[in-house]
């Protein structure tokens, strides 16, 4: 897990957006984040996994909303107006990530990011790219590549 993001030169400074889901803190690379907006009710999609909350209208584009809590294996969020959608670019697609709150922008060097310890959880292996210890809090760095449901895996 030493390779964290091929786009960022090793040893360089990187900026991360941290957010809360329940009592946990996570962060993603700021370069992937397009905008942050308040929660609006989504239109449910049939035949979709539970963590896909539906689709919303983002200035004319149809944006799928992934409940990041459910995706990461926690209990799904009970949405309220205080919830926040992080609009992130994943490859060619734009996806909304439902989180409880956005907390901070962190500027860190790569060596601050510790490799994920070996744990049994598949979820951790799939999404967690590393751990940061900031002011005594543990923040998990999330990789977004696998956030959307994998078509091939489901078809199999």
């Amino acid at each position: 897990m030493t390779q964290i993001n091929p786009n960022i030169p090793a040893g360089g400074l990187r900026e991360l957006i941290s957010f809360r889901i329940g009592a946990q803190e996570f962060c993603v690379d700021i370069m992937a984040v397009r905008e942050i907006r308040g929660w609006t009710a989504a239109t449910a999609l049939p035949q979709s996994p539970a963590f896909v909350r539906g689709v919303i209208n983002l200035r004319g584009a149809v944006l799928p909303i992934v409940d990041l809590a459910a995706r990461l294996g926690f209990e799904g969020s009970e949405t309220s107006d205080r919830h926040v959608i992080i609009v992130a670019q994943i490859g060619e697609q734009v996806v909304g990530l439902l989180v409880d709150a956005v907390s901070d922008i962190l500027t860190v060097t790569d060596d601050v990011i510790q490799p994920t310890p070996d744990v049994a959880s598949d979820t951790a292996k799939t999404f967690v790219r590393g751990l940061l210890a900031i002011d005594g809090r543990m923040i998990s760095l999330i990789g977004l590549e696998r956030v959307l449901p994998d078509l091939d895996l489901e078809a199999a």
Partner: peptide, 16 residues
């Protein structure tokens, strides 16, 4: 509006 652009095809749904 296309659903595939940011998500994927959904059975029973032609578009949005």
């Amino acid at each position: 509006k296309s659903l595939e652009a940011n998500y994927r095809q959904v059975p029973g749904v032609a578009a949005a």
